[in-house]
Nucleic acid binder design. Structure first.
Length: 555
RNA sequence: UGGGGCGUCGCCAAGCGGUAAGGCAACGGACUCUGACUCCGUCAUUCGGGUGUUCAAAUCACUUCGCCCCAGCCA
């Protein structure tokens, strides 16, 4: 007898790793060299969204921790919904997140093997061809409290079943005429065990297999076997598959795979407040043209988040912080925002911009000069940028108040404020139009207050505001939003209600025109998105966020 | 109503019989040429409720209440 190897077990950081540690300690995987093997199995029927990041990180986390392997498997067993567009999008999303899998595999590559196992089931008396219609199967399945009734075709002979199944494969029957069912227990309290369908007829070409097949395996059959074929040790999935676990185990057992056999472990999926996390609805938004595509910045897809300017590192931090458990949970979107801000604060360069510009003219200033700003104050090594200053600038309308609220730190008539990186100015007059709207501010500046100068300066300013030079600033463009702005194509609440969810989060905010400081004669983009809003505190923009958004659009 | 799960601070979440980590949010205060950041401080005598076992329970047992999932030829 071989001695049990002494394996170094890493500290478990969640209940899944705890289970793996126990199994490892019990020697369950000795025959496979204690190699842990997991997989991430999306169906290529849509883009990955933020919810998938949880499954992704749990699986990749296990792979890393145990120095195991991970397959990216396209769970493509329903040809009606799948395509290469989605395969590509999924692969790209993983790249964006920086997750490297060991191999890309397709469930559709196992169709032959799957078929072979199905025939074995028939020969072993574990499956039969059923002629009942879909409605009849539903009707005879029983209810939650009543057992189902056996199909009249349940006791067909092995020979007949085999003949019929081969005819199904050969295309003798139309869609829906027959199915292959697992022969388990029609009175099981677990409805999934009441002779589930494992193969259906569908005369639909497959995006990879073409017309080769007209019968396709169901998830409950294909998934466990795919896992077993690949030597997966742990099949991690979300809670809604808990009821399928007995079937998962049954399918593998009857297929006769040798131990160690894959084990399914479920965890709670990720939910975020006001965020739609269903591929089905997201696809609907795309199909109906409510959004401009799966990568629309308002979408919670990874492609959309990327376009919104969310750094992948922030996403990973967020999902890791949220943890892994089995309790149903809805995480506050504020927690994601916090991760984004946190990362951006640390890494993003800074620039000034104003939304809703208000002209500020310094009446005693002449000429122009260049001022220097740090690109990222937190990272001195990132260098500086130079901004021209001509004495006529635009400031944000929010940074001036005719009637200042209590504790207001910005500009008021007669008050002073510092133009960030430049001078302190005093507002002498607020020019108003016939309606009383402020159209321009006439100010006086104090030369000795120049930023960084050692001159003694008597004037003090309680606030610091951003500005954009009137001559050198540029109109920021909204590359992503310009069309939306033009068409006023905003999904409305009615639409959201029809879809039965709250759209506030993905649709909040519209793009607004703004002015931005010029940078290498390339205007930068400013988006009025969720993050923009979240990054507004007390009416002030946090510049780092804006610049990062810009970067993400300069593809 | 059958079966399967889950209930620890406003939102997540550690805890695994020895006397409630952490993050987000919130609230005070310091600092600040980003009202940001940073920094300091506050924030569960209590773990859905009840009853037991024990010297000792969020952790064990029993019971009760609440929520989620399952009746696709979707995954």
């Amino acid at each position: 007898m071989a001695e049990k190897e002494n394996i170094q077990l890493p500290e478990a950081s969640n209940f899944i790793e705890q289970i793996i540690n126990e199994e490892l300690a019990a020697g369950k995987f000795q025959s496979v060299g204690n190699k842990i093997h997991v997989r991430f199995p999306p169906e290529p029927n849509g883009y990955l969204h933020i919810g998938h990041v949880k499954a992704l990180l749990i699986n990749f986390g296990v792979k890393e921790k145990y120095h195991g392997e991970i397959n990216l498997r396209m769970d493509d067993t329903n040809p009606a919904k799948e395509s290469y567009e989605y395969v590509d999008a999924i692969v790209k999303s993983l790249e964006w997140l920086g997750l490297k899998y060991d191999r890309l595999v397709f469930a559709s590559d196992y169709y032959d093997k799957l078929y072979e196992i199905a025939e074995k089931y028939i020969m072993d008396g574990n499956a039969y061809v059923c002629d009942l219609s879909a409605e009849e199967i539903t009707a005879t399945r029983g209810t939650l409290t009543e057992p189902g009734t056996p199909s009249p075709y349940r006791e067909r002979s092995v020979e007949e079943n085999l003949k019929l199944f081969r005819e199904m494969k050969a295309g003798v029957y139309p869609d829906g005429a027959k199915v292959l069912r697992a022969k388990i227990d029609m009175s099981s309290p677990n409805i999934n065990m009441r002779d589930p369908v494992i193969y259906r007829i569908a005369h639909v070409p497959h995006y990879r297999q073409g017309d080769k097949w007209c019968i396709y395996p169901m998830y409950d059959f294909a998934h466990p076997i795919s896992d077993a074929i690949e030597g997966i040790t742990h099949s991690l999935c979300s809670l809604e598959f808990e009821n399928h676990r007995p079937l998962y185990d049954w399918v593998i057992e009857k297929a006769g795979f040798p131990a160690p056999v894959p084990r399914q472990i479920e965890f709670a999926r990720l939910n975020i407040t006001n965020t739609l996390m269903s591929k089905r609805y997201l696809k609907k938004l795309v199909d109906e043209g409510v959004v401009r595509g799966w990568d629309d910045p308002r979408m919670p897809t990874l492609a959309g988040l990327k376009n919104r300017g969310v750094p992948p590192e922030a996403l990973k931090k967020f999902v890791t912080d949220v943890g892994v458990a089995k309790a149903y949970a809805v995480v506050n979107a504020a927690q994601l925002d916090s991760c984004v801000r946190d990362y951006l604060n640390e890494n993003a360069g800074r620039a000034m911009a104003v939304v809703d510009p208000l002209k500020l003219t310094i009446t005693n200033y002449q000429g122009e000069e260049e001022l220097s700003f740090e690109i990222n104050p937190l990272k001195p090594e990132s260098g500086t940028r130079n901004i021209k200053f001509t004495g006529t600038v635009y400031i944000g309308r929010d940074d001036f108040a005719l009637v200042p609220p209590p504790k207001y730190k910005r500009l008021t008539v007669g008050g002073t404020v510092r133009l960030k990186g430049a001078y302190i100015v005093r507002c002498d007059e607020a020019v108003q139009d016939e309606n009383g709207n402020v159209t321009e501010l006439k100010c006086t500046y104090f030369p000795e207050s120049r930023s960084g100068s050692d001159l003694p300066c008597a004037v003090k300013a309680k606030g610091v505001i951003q500005w954009v030079d009137a001559k050198y600033g540029v109109d920021a463009e909204f590359r992503q939003y310009e069309q939306l702005l033009k068409d006023e194509q905003y999904p409305d609440q009615d639409y959201a209600e029809r879809l039965n969810y709250d759209s506030e989060h993905i649709f909040e905010g519209k793009a607004e025109p703004c002015l931005a400081e010029a940078e290498e004669d390339k205007p930068f983009q400013l988006l009025r998105t969720g993050y923009y809003k979240k990054c507004t505190q007390g009416g002030r923009l946090i510049l780092s966020e804006i610049v990062s958004l810009k970067d993400s659009f300069n593809k």
